[in-house]
């Protein structure tokens, strides 16, 4: 009798409706990426193909060069300040009683909309008489992305680090020695992926530079590609005009592919370390 009871199928608490709703949410999100990418492919791919023709590359080089220029200029200061700020916030002893407030303030800074930071930069630049330039935009991009870099670096330094920090502290190691000799080497891969994520933010960010420099300026000026607009602004300025929609879609596709590749690299770089952390 008891064996019969055990051999029965266990009572299932299956609730079809929640399962269907959750599944619908997931596949709806998946569907939206397919719709967006499919739409961009359908509208932009013919233009990408035609851009590969003899005259195409010339119009693409300017925006791509400007994108690279801004990224190369903005990334190092954003990364350096972000990592150092994270090092300072990662150990409660560095800010003492203010440590909790410092961490709260750092996460709060990240919530300021980039459009406001850019607007403030525009006003400040106008007040001191600076002319809009790609270098100025790169400077603003660096500032805008510092909180993001700080947040990512802080997460890289503090994930599953409490016991390590405790052990090293109990051995008499000072806070910064622990960060530099124990936590930073351990977080190396995660930090590299953080740089790439911040780089993709800079590459994909349009609002800041568009505000700072104004979108009415033509996509390229003169022979020097340095005066061209980054790809994101290029798309942004043309986005709403129905007659150039194909070009816009093509540029957006190019930008999305570039960012997907970088994000993919960032994830691959972070993956081996998460595995090694499981061992600790």
């Amino acid at each position: 009798m008891a064996i019969d009871a055990l051999s029965d199928k266990p009572a299932r608490m299956f609730r079809p409706l929640p399962a269907v709703v959750f599944a619908a949410c997931a596949w709806l999100l998946c569907g939206s990426v397919i719709v967006i990418v499919g739409w961009l492919l359908a509208n932009g791919l013919p233009k990408v193909v035609s851009a590969l023709g003899p005259r195409g590359p010339e119009s693409a080089i300017g925006p791509l060069f400007a994108t690279a220029y801004i990224t190369v200029l903005a990334l190092p200061p954003a990364a350096a300040v972000g990592v150092f700020a994270a090092m300072g916030a990662s150990d409660v002893r560095i800010f003492g009683a203010a440590a909790g407030s410092m961490r709260s303030a750092l996460s709060l800074v990240g919530s300021v909309p980039t459009v406001i930071v850019a607007y403030a930069a525009l006003l400040a630049a106008a007040a001191v008489g600076w002319h809009p330039s790609l270098t100025g935009a790169a400077f603003v991009f660096a500032i805008v992305n510092m909180p993001l870099m700080t947040g990512l670096a802080l997460r890289a330094l503090t994930t599953r680090a409490a016991k390590l920090r405790e052990v090293a502290t109990a051995l008499g190691a000072p806070p910064m020695y622990i960060v530099i000799s124990v936590l930073l080497p351990r977080a190396r891969m995660r930090l590299r992926s953080a740089y790439i994520i911040v780089a993709t933010q800079i590459i994909g960010g349009a609002a800041t530079i568009a505000i700072l420099a104004g979108a009415n300026v033509p996509a390229s000026r003169g022979a020097l590609p340095i005066h061209a607009w980054p790809l994101a602004v290029h798309i942004w300025t043309r986005g709403s005009s129905a007659d150039v929609y194909g070009v816009t879609a093509a540029s957006a596709l190019l930008l999305a592919v570039l960012i997907w590749v970088l994000q993919g690299i960032a994830q691959l770089r972070a993956a081996p370390e998460s595995a090694s952390q499981e061992d600790l």
Binding site: K163, L164, E166, V167, A168, A170, L171, P185, R186, L280
Partner: peptide, 14 residues
């Protein structure tokens, strides 16, 4: 350094 401590769960530095 003068007052060493050993914890319940051994944690190895990486």
């Amino acid at each position: 350094r003068n007052v060493g401590m050993v914890f319940a769960r051994p944690t190895m530095l990486p």
